[in-house]
């Protein structure tokens, strides 16, 4: 059997879809892009521009289509889809990468303790009504005790004890607490997310405020003596004197006394005495040499003299 004819036919078919170039084309299937790094042929470019552009484009597109049609195919509702590889060309992003969301206090705790998140259904089954009701919200299951027509009350309850009101208040308090926690989480997230310096910790801030309040209270003409007192204002605390204990260990006593003695033996520490340890007072010397103009002027003078010498 002669297969050469079949082979030739197959080769001819291949010919139509294969593009031969000196430098192989670079295909970025992720961006549906092909780049032809071959230099432009000047002769054919000048002979017929449009024809040349179309033929290079055809060669490029043929290569790209060949790549795309050999990609793995998955079927979907809309028809077969070619799975594209991630692009190789790097394009700049339009926005910075998203920052990871800061954890809430509960999430931090749960993470540390290894508690995993358990999703609660939004509805629960109500045995009495025999239907699914919302856990919270309008006609929510959490208000069941507030609306029921009969509630047992403790024997020692007050005359005006309202069980529905009590349950309602408790629920409202829970909601408020949760809101506060949420606000704190938001504030914490903003603090950590902002680039500016973080706010000082609460204790330090409180100390600062206390100090400011104390100063303002003492800064009236009467030093606060005849000022009107505000409700709940505490008496200003002064600094209490502290005395060392009369009985200390002999070692501590010795070190204290030695410290005093060593201080007595030393010369008094002044600015002059600190500088006099050096042989030369540089600042004074500079002032003298530059006739009071400073070191910059001295340097300039020296440079200009050098320049003149070179010229000569």
């Amino acid at each position: 059997m002669d297969v050469s004819e079949i082979l030739a036919e197959h080769a001819a078919k291949q010919q139509a879809v294969v593009v031969e170039k000196e430098i192989p084309l670079e295909v970025d299937a992720g961006f549906l892009t092909v780049t032809d790094p071959n230099p432009i042929d000047e002769e054919s470019y000048k002979a017929d521009l449009e024809d040349y552009l179309m033929s290079t484009a055809r060669d490029g597109v043929q290569t790209l289509i060949a790549t795309l049609f050999s990609l793995p195919i998955t079927s979907s509702q809309d028809g077969p889809l070619a799975q594209l590889p991630p692009p190789t060309t790097q394009l700049p992003r339009a926005k910075p990468l998203p920052k990871p969301k800061p954890l809430t206090k509960w999430e931090q705790f749960a993470k540390a303790k290894g508690i995993s998140h358990r999703k609660k259904e939004k509805k629960t089954w109500d045995e009495e009504k025999q239907e699914w009701v919302d856990r919270w919200g309008w006609k929510g299951a959490n208000k069941k005790e507030e609306v029921q027509w009969l509630t047992p009350i403790p024997a020692n309850a007050d005359v005006d004890f309202d069980p529905a009101k009590k349950v309602r208040d408790e629920r409202k308090a829970r909601v408020e607490k949760n809101q506060k926690q949420q606000e704190k989480n938001v504030a914490r997230a903003q603090q950590s997310g902002s680039t500016s310096a973080p706010a000082p910790p609460t204790a330090q801030r409180k100390r600062e405020i206390d100090r400011t309040v104390a100063t303002t209270r003492m800064s009236t003409a009467s030093m606060g003596r005849f000022d009107r007192k505000l409700d709940g204002e505490k008496k200003l605390k002064g600094i209490k004197r502290k005395f060392d204990p009369t009985e200390v260990s002999s070692q501590a006593e010795q070190s204290q006394n030695m410290a005093i003695l060593s201080k007595l033996g030393r010369e008094p520490e002044t600015k002059k005495s600190r500088t006099s340890s050096e042989v030369l007072n540089v600042r004074k010397a500079v002032r003298f040499a530059s006739k009071g103009k400073g070191s910059a002027a001295l340097a300039r003078d020296a440079n200009s003299k050098k320049g003149k010498k070179v010229k000569r």
Binding site: I40, E42, T56, A57, V61, L81, A82, Q83, L84
Partner: peptide, 18 residues
């Protein structure tokens, strides 16, 4: 991550002069 091959309808070609 995927494309419908029948939807490829046009090409934008950018070529430089020599």
């Amino acid at each position: 991550d995927a494309i419908h091959l029948a939807g490829l309808e046009h090409v934008i070609s950018v070529t430089l002069s020599p």
